[in-house]
Amino acid sequence: MTYAFPFSAIVGQDDMKQALLLAALDPSIGGVLVLGDRGTGKSTAVRALAAILPPIKVVQGCTYNCDPTAKGVACPACAAAAAGGSKLKSVEKPVPVVDLPLGATEDRVVGALDLERALTAGEKAFEPGLLARANRGFLYVDEVNLLEDHLVDLLIDVAASGQNVVEREGLSIRHPARFVLVGSGNPEEGELRPQLLDRFGLSLDVRTPTDLAQRIEVIKRRDAFERDPQTFMAAWKDADAAICDGLAKARKRLEKLEVPDVVLEAAARLCTRLGTDGLRGELTLMRAARARAALDGARSVTVKHLRAVAPMVLRHRLRRDPLDETGSGVRVERAIAELFDREVAAS
C-alpha cells in the first residue's frame, strides 16, 4: 500500500495549493499547469488532492463516473438506461485523480477493443481508457512537456470538447470525458505547444523556498512521512478534513455568488491592457475570481479577489516577446499595479 503525502502537510507553495483548490471548486476554470524547479512538491500536491476533495455521486457501476442527477451528457450505457426509463442507482465515490504516465499507449488513454473478450469470446466490446476514468475528476500528466505529440493532440481535442470520440478497430464510441487537466514539468526540458498551453486555465511557476527554516521543515515532514506514513497521515487527518469541509461549503456558496459589473469591467480592462487574445482570459478571470471569493467565504466578488487570481490566470496567455527580459508573471503584476493601485490612490 502506498500512501499519498497529505495535502495540508505541504510546506509553503501557497499559490500552487490555491490554484488546485480553485480548479477543484469550479472545473470550468480549466486545468492547472505547474512549471518550475525540481523537487518543489508538484506531483505530491496533485496526488494529495484525492484525499481532500468532497466525494461525488456517481451512477453505480458506471465506468465513466456519470452523474445520476445531470441531464445531457452521459455515457452510452447510462443514456440507454435513462432512455429506457429505469432509475439509476447512485453511490458516493472519491473524486478520481488519474495519472497519465509517460509511455502510456494510445489504446489505454482513449480506450480500445477489449482484447480478452475479443480473443476468447469473439465479442466486440469497448474497454474504456484513462480518459473515461478521469471523467469528473482530475487527469494528471507529470512532465507534460515530454508527452508524445500524438497524445498531446488527443488531449487537446478531448479537453476542448469534453467528449472522447473513439473510432478504431471497428468501434464507434463516444463518451463524456470532462476532467481538470493538471500538468507539471520543468521548463528547462522544453516548452509546451501553445495549443496545449491554452487549454490550461491557470498556470504557475513554483520555486524552491529560499528561507532556510522552511527548507528544513520540508525535509522534516517528508522524512517523518517516509519513516512512518501511518502516524504521519493520522496527525494530518484533521487538517485535511478541514480543507475538505471548506471546499464543500465553498461549493455551496459558489452557486449564489454573482460577479458585479465593476469586477467584470476591471477584468476586461486588465486583459485589454495586457493584450491577451480572445475572451478566454476574461472568462477564466471571472470564474477564478468567483471561486476565490467562495473559498475566502466572502459575500461578494470584489476586485481584490480578481487581483489575487490574475497572475495565475493571465501569465501564460501573454504574447511572447523574446526581446522582453522580464518574465510574464512580472508583466502581469506590473499591469495590475498600474491599473488598480492608481485607482485605490485616487479614490
Binding site: D37, G39, T40, T208, R215, I219, E226
Partner: peptide, 11 residues
Amino acid sequence: VDSPRASLAAL
C-alpha cells in the same frame, strides 16, 4: 543545491 531531494537523500 535547491531540490529537497538531495537533502533528503543526504539525511
